Amino acid sequence: MTKLVAFETLKRPDTPNTYLVLPAGMMSTAHPDETSPVYGEPAEALYQRLKMLAAGKDRWTIAAHDDSEMQLEIVAATKLLKFKDDVSIRVVSAKDGAQTAEIAVYSRSRLGKYDFKANQKRVQTLLSELKGNAAATA
């Protein structure tokens, strides 16, 4: 079974082939590249929507999940060469409690030193898709 990433104690490599988004209040040993947007729905609803979105994406496989922690571990294959990259996602309630949520996302390449911003694009596309689909599920 794939081990869940511990965002609080995350150690990123020195190579530029990772991308990290963290909620504004999440304490972590790693410095994020971006702060999570706040989604206008409860964490559980966002997590369920995220699971459906991940399961429906081409070249994405959910390798592990923990529903109680609202965390997914995903293997994403690149389009052209089918390299396997890892994506860890955890949904957390935002500061206002049950009405809004944020996500922590860590995307990283298994091979190579440079990813030509593939991880950044993957994460930013996911964030945009979640924002764009929010109205449809509200």
Score class of each variant (00 low, 15 high):
Met26Leu: 15
Leu72Asp: 01
Gly112Ala: 05
Gln120Gly: 10
Tyr47Val: 04
Arg12Glu: 09
Arg108Glu: 09
Arg59Gln: 12
Leu50Cys: 08
Gly97Phe: 02
Gln124Asp: 11
Lys84Gln: 13
Arg90Val: 00
Arg59Thr: 12
Gly97Leu: 06
Ala118Leu: 13
Phe83Thr: 06
Gly112Lys: 06
Met1Gly: 12
Tyr19Cys: 04
Tyr47Glu: 02
Glu34Ala: 13
Asp67Glu: 15
Thr61Glu: 14
Val91Cys: 03
Ala24Val: 14
Val87Trp: 03
Asp85Cys: 09
Ser109Cys: 10
Pro13Thr: 11
Leu81Gly: 02
Arg122Asp: 01
Lys57Gly: 01
Ile103Phe: 03
Ile62Trp: 02
Ala76Asp: 01
Ser68Gln: 13
Ile103Val: 15
Val38Cys: 10
Ala63Met: 12
Val123His: 01
Val91Lys: 00
Ile89Val: 12
Lys57Tyr: 03
Gln99Val: 01
Thr18Trp: 06
Arg122Pro: 03
Ala6Val: 07
Glu41Val: 03
Lys113Glu: 13
Lys82Asp: 09
Tyr114Cys: 03
Phe83Pro: 00
Leu4Cys: 09
Met1Ile: 12
Leu130Ser: 05
Pro32Leu: 03
Asn119Glu: 07
Pro32Thr: 00
Lys51Asp: 05
Leu10His: 08
Ala104Tyr: 01
Lys3Gln: 15
Lys121Glu: 13
Phe7Glu: 00
